[in-house]
Amino acid sequence: MLEQFKELSYFGIMLALTFEFVPAELVLPLAGYWVYEGDMTLWGTVLAGTVGGTFGPLTLYAVGRYGGRPFILKFGKYFFINEEKLTKADEFFEKNGAMVAFTARFLPGVRTLISIPCGMAKMNVWVFSIYTFVAMLPITFIYVYLGFKLGENWKNVGELANQYILPAGIAVLVIFVAYKLITRKKKKTYREQHKTASKKH
Rank of each mutant, 00 (worst) to 15 (best):
I114N: 02
F106L: 07
P108L: 11
T45C: 09
R105Q: 14
E91V: 15
T45V: 09
P70H: 06
A104N: 03
D90R: 07
T45K: 10
N82L: 00
F102V: 05
R65H: 08
I81S: 08
T112F: 04
I116Y: 01
T45G: 08
D39I: 00
T112I: 12
K88D: 09
F75P: 04
E94T: 13
Y66T: 12
F80I: 14
A98Q: 12
A104W: 00
I81K: 01
G97K: 11
G64I: 06
E83L: 02
E84R: 12
T87Y: 00
N82D: 15
L86T: 11
T59R: 00
K88E: 14
I72P: 08
R65V: 01
L86V: 09
T45L: 09
M123K: 04
K74M: 06
N96D: 03
F80P: 02
G68E: 09
Y66R: 10
K85D: 14
L42M: 15
C118Y: 02
G119Y: 05
L113G: 03
K77W: 13
G109T: 10
G56C: 05
E84C: 00
E83Q: 13
G97R: 12
P117G: 05
P117F: 03
L73H: 04
F128R: 10
S115N: 04
L107K: 02
V125C: 02
K122P: 00
T41K: 12
A62W: 07
E91G: 00
A121F: 12
